[in-house]
């Protein structure tokens, strides 16, 4: 009974949040939206992302994620991801200037046999990469690059920011293990869950000495 009740409450909150987000989105179509309007929209998106990440992780813990595997054109997927990313759209650095999020076509390496197509659940993977992007954007100085690399039975997504590097990574990893409630830890855990649901893939974060932080998510073919 208690479980049903909490499920109902959570569902209700999520729906209300979704409506609020769409209202704010439509409101922001107007040219003369005050800064508060934009801020409210950003906060709503963050809150929603946290709730969805949490719910997806909860589902993963309870019964595992069941990816609905479809054929996806990788370059188009990454371009759409960047173009539609709410984190990218809202990205401003701590110094007050816009962060550029860039789908890096030159680094993209489609596998010739697979013809640049991959098989995965685009909604789940998008959810995961959006949270990785959100993280990168928060720590970037000016720029975030996103691309994919494809090998015979693996698809690798990479998100590279030009942020401070090592120190941040340590901090991230620590937060991730110590306390899952922070949004960074939640985001990373979500990425892990989504990668694992795709043929036991994995994720990693590494510091590129002075060149920023590289997030990697590896998906394998789902049997």
């Amino acid at each position: 009974m208690q479980k049903t009740l909490s499920a109902l409450v959570v569902h209700d909150i999520k729906n209300a949040l979704a409506l609020l987000e769409i209202d704010l989105e439509q409101l922001n179509h107007h040219k003369d939206v005050p800064p508060e309007g934009r801020r409210a929209y950003r906060r709503c998106i963050e809150l929603k992302n946290r709730l969805i990440s949490f719910l997806t992780l909860y589902k993963y813990d309870q019964s595992g994620l069941q990816p609905l595997v479809v054929e996806v054109e990788l370059a188009e997927f990454v371009e759409d991801l960047v173009r539609n990313s709410q984190s990218a759209m809202m990205a401003e650095s701590h110094h007050g200037h816009q962060i550029v999020v860039h789908a890096d076509g030159e680094r993209m390496k489609p596998d010739s046999a697979a013809g640049g197509f991959g098989m995965f659940d685009e909604n789940l993977v998008e959810l995961a990469l959006e949270s990785a992007l959100n993280n990168a954007v928060r720590y970037a100085r000016q720029r975030v690059d996103v691309w994919f690399e494809q090998e015979a039975d693996e698809i690798i997504f990479r998100v590279l920011d030009d942020g401070a590097g090592v120190g941040v990574v340590d901090e991230l990893m620590q937060r991730n293990t110590a306390e899952k409630s922070s949004s960074t830890g939640l985001g990373l855990a979500l990425c892990k869950a989504v990668a694992e649901a795709h043929g036991s893939g994995h994720v990693s974060l590494e510091s590129l000495d002075g060149a920023g932080t590289l997030f990697t998510m590896v998906l394998r073919r789902v049997a």
Partner: peptide, 10 residues
């Protein structure tokens, strides 16, 4: 609204 739609669709 559910990630579990994947289960149904599969």
């Amino acid at each position: 609204a559910e990630a579990e739609y994947g289960f149904v669709a599969n």
